[in-house]
Design a protein around this nucleic acid. Structure first.
Lengths: 140, 140
DNA sequence: TATTTACCTACTGTGTCAATAGGTATTTTA
DNA sequence: TAAAATACCTATTGACACAGTAGGTAAATA
């Protein structure tokens, strides 16, 4: 399962994309709109800043903003930053001491194929693809 | 990440498939061949029996055997039995109180698409697909 | 009857998840 | 210059799952 970190990160990025061009967006606003604890979001946003995906400005009038345009982010990089990896098994991690079974392992090829598939899926999706055509819905 | 339960279950099933027609295979043998603690495998195998995927026979000369032919199992059902679900987010689980955001959630369609993809992947793979063409390798 | 096997219940250490708590540093504005 | 609003920082916590381990009982065969 994708953890709340990855999912919330995605929602923060979407929220910021929806308010692109409005300057710095305070985390408080995002937390209220998304109905997520601001305190918890701090942890997530910290990672996004550290990873260079967001830009944070302190002080009054401060807040967060996207470092790039929404179509220049992939969902994959956002998820991977917060989740650590998308690999389904440790054997596929770079730098993993290759397991002694790897030469004869009958499941490894499947995990590889699977990993390539999901990697392609998430890296093929842009943040802008998630924004939808709907702007705020005004009808009741 | 797929846990050891799912991965070990797959290896048990493969091992049994490789020794199909040899009657009851003691768990001890599987544990030794796969180099996994027999005690831990007991937990996994219990689930496989409970799920009807394996048949266990007690007593001397007992052991485990496949309930069906290797091409009548999908990898998906094996993994799902041990992992609980393959769904990437709780929102997709049947019986989940549908989240209040579900109508407007911009990420839900992506999770759905993702779930359908991985479900198709794992349910499209049969246990027999994993056996490979190589029988035991005899050369040094 | 001895042996071998499956099957059962309980326990444990470790780590991650999902936050919460309480601060400090920074910047703008009144 | 003081107040307010913001990001940013470290630490802590409860619950739970993961990955086993321990020690038995029941069943079947030789």
């Amino acid at each position: 399962m994708i953890s709340t970190k990855g999912r919330y990160a995605l929602r923060v990025m979407i929220d910021l994309a929806q308010h692109e061009g409005e300057g710095n967006i305070p985390l408080k606003d995002i937390a209220e709109r998304q109905d997520i604890s601001k305190k918890y979001l701090e942890i997530i946003v910290k990672e996004l800043v550290k990873g260079g995906l967001l830009h944070g400005v302190s002080g009054k009038g401060g807040g967060y903003s996207l470092s790039r345009k929404p179509d220049e982010y992939t969902v994959g990089e956002i998820l991977e930053l917060l989740e650590g990896t998308l690999a389904p098994v440790a054997c596929l991690l770079e730098g993993a001491d290759s397991c002694p079974r790897s030469d004869t392992c009958l499941t490894l090829p499947m995990w590889k194929e699977y990993y390539e598939m999901i990697h392609g899926f998430f890296y093929g999706k842009k943040l802008s693809d998630l924004l939808g055509s709907r702007d705020p819905v005004y009808y009741i």
